[in-house]
Amino acid sequence: MSSTPVIGVLALQGDVREHLIALAAADAVARPVRRPEELAEVDGLVVPGGESTTISKLAELFGLMGPVRERIAAGMPVYGTCAGLIMLADKILDPRSGQETFGGIDMIVRRNAFGRQNDSFEAGVTVTGIDTPSRASSSVPRGWSPSVPRSRCSPSTTATSSPSARARPSRPPSTPSSPATTASTSCSWTWCARNGDTIPVGSLGFVQEVGYAKETGRCPATLNGLRRSTRRP
């Protein structure tokens, strides 16, 4: 426990640089992961935002799908933002045909639940457990109102997994089951950790709740670092 854990950032496509910067700002040792050998050298993995169809395709093409699943099943902590959320869901609705995820979190995510790019929006977000309201963007249809049950949106924004908290040994992750966490309609954030003053704060609430911190004692620093470093002057 004395040596600093190494956190990998899945570097197939998407917001790789931003997550590496955020982790470094939180004094984590962070490095990109594109190959199975690189995965073997990290203690935890961040799956960044990006295009989820592509990330899943590239994970298959470059031989990472199996190894990442195995590591998650074996207890490696993982953290997902945006497309990373989709990749960590045990089940996705409306996937590309045959689209696979890493899984690890017992929840369902619906891709593009609220429409295409034209329907994407930004809004103020207040999340229980986070002091300051923040701006975030998501894909929600025009006319959608906050009267939608709150629980539909919050947990799905991003996710983390640790073996005792959520991950079950039963694979494959895409097996339709009755998920304990029904994060069914995704507010899949289209805004990831850069260019603004926030990362999707809903995710932080969920991460804190799931208990990566409880497992390792490292989480709060990382999260605070993420929040701090994504603020811009």
């Binding site: 930004e122 906050p146 919050s154 947990p155 805004w191 260019n195 609430g205 709740e209």
Partner: peptide, 19 residues
């Protein structure tokens, strides 16, 4: 469960488009 609320969603902002 953490609760999330959205206030006044705006579409087509520079942030959404650049994002």
């Amino acid at each position: 469960t953490p609760s999330t609320t959205f206030q006044s969603p705006e579409t087509g902002t520079a942030r959404v488009k650049r994002g």
